[in-house]
């Protein structure tokens, strides 16, 4: 795949999602079944996105690098920048229509679908690597730690990485 094609996929996913990880499902759906990216690359990119500073949405930059090298990350960067830039152009118009019931409804429906579809994608990522008791326990532990937000994400990932190293025989 060329960086240009990658850019177009990223742009489409960004236009139809909201929030940093809102585009995970549609990108996974575009790339993995066609063999253009692997589950492992998705996990790695999502992890880097959570570890690096700035908006989580930069995970796509990491995915671009893993799939296509430096040009992939440039393509991703431009792709995720464009939709929010549109806001400048349509701010006036947008603030006028945003309370129209159909617009409100469309965005709410979109956001619900984005949130809902993130779950099966995560489960597929987990399933792809083989599920065992330890992994399920780590998922639950990471969920609980992440939910209460007392412990930084870096520490949660670090702890799980350490457990992974210790139990890797």
């Amino acid at each position: 795949m060329t960086p240009m094609a990658f850019f177009l996929y990223v742009l489409r996913a960004a236009l139809l999602s909201s929030g940093g990880f809102g585009n995970v499902s549609s990108l996974h759906d575009s790339f993995v079944p066609r063999g253009m990216a692997t589950d492992a690359q998705f996990v790695q990119a999502l992890t880097v996105g959570q570890l690096s500073p700035g908006p989580n949405g930069l995970w796509v930059v990491s995915l671009g690098y893993l799939m296509l090298g430096p040009w992939g990350s440039v393509a991703a960067f431009v792709g995720i920048m464009i939709p929010p830039i549109l806001i400048i152009g349509i701010e006036r118009l947008y603030s006028r229509v945003q309370h129209h019931p159909a617009v409100e409804g469309f965005i709410r429906g979109l956001n619900l679908a984005v949130a809902g579809m993130f779950v099966p994608i995560l489960l597929k990522l987990l399933q792809g690597s083989g599920i065992d008791e330890l992994k399920v326990a780590l998922v639950v532990a990471a969920f609980i730690l992440g939910w209460f937000q007392r412990i930084p994400v870096v520490v949660v990932i670090g702890l799980c990485a350490a457990i992974g190293i210790l139990t890797n025989r």
């Binding site: 996990v43 639950v140 990485a161 992974g164 139990t167």
Partner: peptide, 16 residues
């Protein structure tokens, strides 16, 4: 080895 632990961590945090 670390990746084997990181995968479930990313999934758990993603569910949050």
């Amino acid at each position: 080895g670390a990746l084997k632990g990181i995968l479930p961590a990313t999934v758990g945090l993603g569910l949050v």
